[in-house]
Design a protein around this nucleic acid. Sequence first.
DNA 1: CGAAGCATTGAAGTGCGTCAACAATCGTGG
DNA 2: CCACGATTGTTGACGCACTTCAATGCTTCG
Lengths: 239, 239
Amino acid sequence: MISVHLKKLRERTEISPEQERAIRAAVAETRLLPADKIVIRAGEELNTSMLLLEGWMARSKDLQSGERQVTELHVAGDFADLHAFTLKQLDHDVMTLSECTVAIVPHDRLQDITERYPHVGRAYWFATNVDAAIHREMALSLGQRSALSRMAHLFCELYVRLEVVGRANRDGFNLPLTQRELSECLGLTVVHANRTLQELRRRKLVEFEKGKLTVLDRRGLEGIADFDPAYLYLGKRKL
Amino acid sequence: MISVHLKKLRERTEISPEQERAIRAAVAETRLLPADKIVIRAGEELNTSMLLLEGWMARSKDLQSGERQVTELHVAGDFADLHAFTLKQLDHDVMTLSECTVAIVPHDRLQDITERYPHVGRAYWFATNVDAAIHREMALSLGQRSALSRMAHLFCELYVRLEVVGRANRDGFNLPLTQRELSECLGLTVVHANRTLQELRRRKLVEFEKGKLTVLDRRGLEGIADFDPAYLYLGKRKL
DNA sequence: CGAAGCATTGAAGTGCGTCAACAATCGTGG
DNA sequence: CCACGATTGTTGACGCACTTCAATGCTTCG
């Protein structure tokens, strides 16, 4: 199961068999989490991180008044809270959106690995930096793109990220989000997210029902989104 | 001059004299950059990073249509593009907003330091993770806060970050931005940024002229902003 | 001194939010 | 297996925060 994580790592850099063994050995335990639970609350002290092996998770921040912003979605292969390795507590909640399988990785083992294999340390540092790049693209979306373009952009991003870990089909991918959750990712109200979705449907770009997103016209979607996957830093590199 | 950077590091963790020497020795050269220049373009190959010693810089992303979003402002003591150490090219531009003094740090020296002093490596990893936390707070602002609250929040954040490096006064701080640049940070048009600024003035919360921001009522500003500095991860910690 | 950038203002338009209602679906217990 | 309440999706009417366009004076600086 952890191979999905190695697949994601190896999309970006070489991981030797020895390093792979070390990474596999870092997992203390595998856990099944129910859907729709907050698994980490902002401010909690942490000494482990969670590797998402199956399912969907989200990071979110709330205003005092209750408005919620999802700052990142996580798919199989992602470390959901690798940044907790250095931060030790988070500035946001982490929640499950579906039932999830996660591997628990204690920080002392991560420290071991990163000191014994600096290359792996840089690969993980790199991974948190890609998260930051995803945040920046999101700031561009929230600040400058229209609701339609923003939603199209999110779909394009998820499509690519899922392809990397072999979780997308030729015609789309599973996306087990409610429209409320979708709206919280996009900084929209549910009502407007619904209307935006309808407009994407009307333009024959996507279908979305029962937790499945069907992409009817990927180029068209990417056009509306002004999508350029460069910020995802795909492809092999020296680290 | 590089002491401002050490001051920022030491706000969060211990740095030994030996580590300090290594960090100082990592600087290959110090450079003076003119104001309002793009110094790094998205996609450029990089093998050095820039430590900002004096002045203001910004990271920004543009849509094809020309709309610009500033994703982060940098002040003295910040590594403006430390993430380039692992990413090797950026997904955004980096520009000067004022005349800037920067120290150039080659990546091979950074690699040396991080391998010889894993603690310093984690401190720098931590620093890029705080950048990501700032991005997340910005996503919350752009997605959920009103223009007024968003502007107030930016001012609160900068106030705290400048205090850490001793660049703020009791009554405010220097902020050499035009209203256009300010609007690009906030995802607003110049016109509306201007009106929002006037509203903050009208409410006797801030003054802003000639590149100086005077904070008249800090608590009031923080209230409007729903500001909680936890996401800046201030205070000493083990790394 | 002129040109260019910057701050400001007014008037008018619109994308998205708010409120409210209802339909469809789902999960759960009886 | 059905009944039921709760959640989710959808629609309409209306309002408002922010945008757009356009004009004007103010700085700044070569």
